[in-house]
Design a protein around this nucleic acid. Structure first.
Lengths: 217, 217
DNA sequence: CATTTAATAAAACATTGTTAAATATAGGAA
DNA sequence: TTCCTATATTTAACAATGTTTTATTAAATG
């Protein structure tokens, strides 16, 4: 009944985010509801809208936090390896492990559909770009190549690891799924890097603008 | 009113599926609702449950049809190419084009969460496996390798192309996005295949069971 | 102590998926 | 033809949802 000032707006926001995260971690996004979050933090549903514009914004914030956690995990994974190839493999492995440990929150990053897609893209796109940059840094350390090629290779490689995760790690991943994902990631990264190193990229002309693509041989 | 027997159960089912598909194609999954589908085919909402157990089943069926269409597109793409490398590139390009042309229906295959996940996996998993098999066939034509390696490589490669699509082709893809996706796909496939061809796989021992992974050098 | 102000709750609304009940029509029987 | 019954179809009802509006209550202020 209106215990004013018991928690600051920022505290409520934080409590709500944490409560929502546990709900999602346990029951998935489908199990999330405004009322459930509200009662979990000892408030009623209306109070949530005092802190968040709507549920989309709450999910958006959680996705941001998840991406931050992921980034920290990736950075951490780089601490144990010295050579670029090993670092790239470690990044892939770390990503897959994170996805397997928090499958619901991880999938929500990509599956959630906010009403206005634009704000999301602007808000969290940068947090995704950071991952590409980590890969770019390793690729640069691997061999001197034009910036453009590095950017393209990093994006191709990281998207691929994500694709392996998306196709292999379900919402309730079994140990064998995760193991297969690791195999695939190692297989992919290893062969891609080998191919990259044996290709003289400067000879290859790709003219995709007019849809006439000259594939490298 | 009850105009009994005007349409057979099967006809209503077909009409509902088509109506739902157009709704999804236009407004995305978020725009889909039981009542909207029902009125679109000139019936009321109750009649839908005479044909489908619930909305999940309807979506499941649509996903199945989408996967069938995709498979047909992939098969078609193989008609224009003769050499395995070109075929693999063509498969990737065809997949990206399909995703770009039907972004909502394509994403729904992966984003939809039915209440009981098991039926879906059993139902449509096979339709996804077919895609891997197409890739396997091309890889076999490329070089003689143990079945196990082929299966792994096909899965790695196709997951990667899917990852590129997932990360690059949004729900409302711009032409430049699609073009970038094509570049990434070509880049990825080319380098991966090059790497695959220059690697003597028989030397590589992967023992991931105990988590001690011996990376290929 | 009285008054304002803002935090919180409570209630109301529209919309959703789904189910149960009501209704009307087609096809056969008398 | 006329009634009857089975069932296709509609209508109504239910519970749950996100969101908005209104009402209340406690703190701050004078």
């Amino acid at each position: 009944m209106g215990r004013r000032g018991e928690h600051s707006k920022l505290e409520i926001e934080c409590m709500a985010l944490e409560a929502a995260e546990t709900i999602i971690e346990n029951e998935g996004y489908a199990g999330l509801s405004a009322r459930k979050v509200a009662t979990a933090i000892g408030y009623t549903v209306g109070s949530l809208y005092f802190v968040f514009r709507n549920l989309d914004e709450l999910v958006l914030r959680i996705n941001g936090r998840t991406l931050d956690q992921l980034y920290a995990v990736l950075i951490n994974a780089l601490a144990d390896c010295r050579y670029p190839q090993r670092c790239l493999l470690a990044l892939g492995t770390a990503y897959l492990d994170f996805a397997a440990q928090h499958p619901h929150r991880w999938r929500m990053i990509f599956e959630h559909r906010p009403r206005d897609e634009e704000t999301l893209t602007e808000m969290n796109k940068e947090k995704m770009e950071r991952c590409y940059e980590l890969v770019e840094k390793q690729l640069k350390a691997l061999a001197a190549r034009p910036e453009e090629e590095i950017v393209l290779a990093a994006r191709a490689l990281w998207s691929s690891v994500h694709g392996i995760a998306a196709m292999t790690i379900t919402r309730n991943p079994h140990a064998e799924d995760v193991q297969l994902a690791h195999q695939l990631s190692i297989n992919l990264i290893t062969h891609y890097l080998t191919g990259l190193s044996t290709t003289d990229f400067s000879n290859v002309i790709m003219q995709t603008a007019g849809r006439a693509v000259d594939y490298p041989k």
